[in-house]
Amino acid sequence: MDDLEKLLRARFRQDAPEVPADLDAAIVGLGHEAAAGHVRRRRRLRLVRIGSVAAAAAIVALCWLGTRALDEPRTLDVADAWRVARGLADPDETARLDLTGDGRLDAADADRILDRVVSLRPRRDR
C-alpha cells in the first residue's frame, strides 16, 4: 500500500454509531424467527423503530411476524398513483406513498405521485 492509499484509508475512517444492545438483539432475534420459518418467504416484513432505539425491541416483537411491508426500492410510477387514487394501496405502503405526509393515502397523494412521475428534474444516472 502506498502513502496515498494510506492517506485515503485514514481520511475515509468514519465513526459509526454504537448499535444499542436491544436493537442488536432484535435483529438477531429476527434472524432466528426467520430461520424457524416464522417469517414466511413471501410475507412482507419490516422492523419499525419509532424515535428512540429503546423502543425497537418492543416494536420488533410486535412486527417481526410480518405485519408491515418493506418495499423493494422502486421509483414511483403511475400504477402507484392509480392504486392510491382508488384507495387500493396497501396500508403498509403508506410510508412510501404518503407524499403529503399526513399519515394517510388519498387523492392528494395520488396527485403528488403523478407530479413526481412526470417531473423532468434530472435523474442522476450512474
Binding site: V78, A85, S119
Partner: peptide
C-alpha cells in the same frame, strides 16, 4: 395527460394518466 409544463419548448416529455 399529466405532464411537466417545463417539457413544452423542449424535446422530452413524461406523460402519465389514470382513469378511476
Amino acid at each position: 395527460p399529466r405532464y411537466d409544463p417545463k417539457a413544452l419548448q423542449g424535446d422530452r416529455i413524461v406523460l402519465a394518466a389514470l382513469a378511476v
